[in-house]
Write a protein that binds this DNA or RNA. Structure first.
Ligand SMILES: NC(=O)c1ccc[n+]([C@@H]2O[C@H](COP(=O)([O-])OP(=O)(O)OC[C@H]3O[C@@H](n4cnc5c(N)ncnc54)[C@H](O)[C@@H]3O)[C@@H](O)[C@H]2O)c1
Ligand SMILES: NC(=O)c1ccc[n+]([C@@H]2O[C@H](COP(=O)([O-])OP(=O)(O)OC[C@H]3O[C@@H](n4cnc5c(N)ncnc54)[C@H](O)[C@@H]3O)[C@@H](O)[C@H]2O)c1
Lengths: 254, 254
DNA sequence: ATGCCTTTGTGAACGCGTGCACAAAGATTG
DNA sequence: CAATCTTTGTGCACGCGTTCACAAAGGCAT
């Protein structure tokens, strides 16, 4: 998972477990797709498959929101979309600033998926004077000098950091001082923030390293199995034998 | 957290807990910084601060790798860098393909942090015939028709998907069929893969929604506190204006 | 060599998250 | 209206992850 929570010791906000909160957007996406197909109701089982989770887990998640289902029938799609949207705070508009309009920042600015859920890019900010005024995604880049004013004028509470790692902490501090209380950090650094400020990070490099770990393990087990004289398992039976960590030496598709 | 694991019921690979594996890259980054400053040793406390974790957790994490510390002194930086690198499989070269060279894919291709940890971009692949041959990040984009051959020829086991959501599952299936066993998915979809294939996802939209949830909660608590007569918290002026645009007005997302 | 000081490595307790399994609830059919 | 069938909502048990707290280990000074 590319996501990492920082600080905040499993704060169970308003009774909703953090793990559940993290899955609500997943359910919302699946429900939105059903809504667009005009499907009136779904069972927990169907929705669970669509969201890629266990149906019991899904039901328990929904139980934290209240009892919105009908036994023997399932959940009303539209109603659930509304309830989850409301719970996530998506029924209001969230102005967002992106700081650091380089390769990644520009891609984010161009990303359509932003606006589709109530997030509005209020400003693009970069420290490079050359960038100032240049349009990116149909919006002029503004200089870092304007940061505090922009945050204040637009009532921005969510900031995205896409600067190089070296400048991230400083940018973070300016954002927080200006009133931002939620930060999405793409720079590969640990950000230190005061209490009350949420930081979530997206770190490509970490994700790849985690994949490499498992990849290496798979390769190692395969080699071990081969060396042990285990004949190359019947890979033909597709996903027959369980995962790599089965007691019995399993072999991976190479 | 922008990260999400798919499938794989908390597989404790080779005795190393998944949660620990996810933190190793964090430690490695902090250690690399220390190494560059020629710091010979660090205590668990210092390193924990640098990595943003609890020191007891860090020590327990390292204990899964073996006993690499010296009591009363700390850990040898260089040695630990090597041990963690080896454990993560970073002592070898991992060829990676990126599929979908649009805004995001191009940014990823241009990202220098890729190569710095043993990950080598072996190919850029896109379905658009117009893109074929066009250089991105000094590398010609190749057409999807070549996908299987590229994977095979280069022994690629890690694939990055940066296509629109609609094409992601199909791309995923082709990658897996061609031999890829680890996938990093940027498309907002749930990917279905056979056992033995690892999928990690990076989902900007989900991260923002989680932040919005907490943001809403903070605003609510502040409002409640204000209403209850509790004077507004220390943070008076700047960050006081918590709410986004409108306080109450609610707008449904698409 | 002895004693003191620092820091590791880990036993143990606790809390969170997950998933099973099932009773209760409501729809539906006859 | 009663019987049956479907699906929810949740009690419960279990395992993972986190954290505390401390004994053991090693360095260092005298
Ligand atoms: N490009 C990717 O695919 C990718 C992937 C993962 C992580 N990242 C991380 O995201 C960050 C940005 O990557 P990039 O490839 O876009 O880099 P980039 O060099 O292309 O862009 C960085 C931008 O930030 C601006 N900047 C620098 N310091 C600033 C400051 N103090 N305040 C405001 N703006 C400032 C620069 O002028 C530049 O425009 C880096 O930390 C990188 O490690 C990038
Ligand atoms: N741009 C962002 O900042 C951002 C952020 C988060 C998530 N995403 C997601 O990442 C994905 C890519 O975003 P983008 O902004 O780069 O989109 P984009 O439209 O700019 O690029 C998509 C590219 O994929 C190619 N493509 C389409 N179908 C393909 C297929 N079947 N095989 C190979 N290539 C194919 C297209 O030709 C195009 O070049 C999307 O799923 C988007 O939701 C993007």
């Amino acid at each position: 998972m590319a996501t990492g929570r920082t600080h905040r010791p499993a704060t169970r906000s308003r009774g909703i477990p953090e793990a559940t909160v993290a899955r609500l957007p997943l359910y919302l996406r699946a429900l939105t797709a059903l809504s667009e197909r005009s499907v009136p109701t779904v069972s927990s089982e169907e929705l669970a498959v669509a969201a890629g989770v266990n149906s019991a887990k899904l039901r328990k998640d929904f139980s934290y929101l209240g009892s919105y289902g009908t036994r023997g029938v399932g959940y009303d799609v539209e109603y659930l979309v509304y309830q989850i949207s409301r719970e996530l705070g998506l029924t209001q508009d969230w102005p967002v600033v992106i700081v650091g309009i380089g390769n990644l920042g520009a891609a984010l600015a161009n990303y359509g998926g932003f606006a589709s859920r109530g997030f509005r890019v209020a400003a693009l900010i970069d420290a490079d004077p050359e960038m100032a005024g240049k349009p990116v995604a149909g919006m002029p880049v503004q200089h870092t000098d304007e940061l505090e004013r922009i945050i204040s004028d637009n009532g921005v509470s969510i900031g995205v950091i896409a600067t190089p790692a070296g400048g991230a902490q400083q940018v973070c501090e300016r954002l927080v001082a200006a009133g931002v209380t939620s930060i999405l950090n793409f720079a590969p650094t640990v950000l230190t923030v005061p209490d009350g400020v949420d930081v979530r990070k997206v770190d490509l490099s970490i994700e790849l390293q985690i994949l490499a770990f498992h990849e290496q393990r798979k390769a190692g087990e395969e080699a071990a199995a081969a060396e042990a004289g285990t004949p190359p398992p019947i890979r033909s039976t597709a996903a027959s034998r369980k995962g790599p960590d089965g007691e019995v030496p399993a072999v991976m598709p190479a």
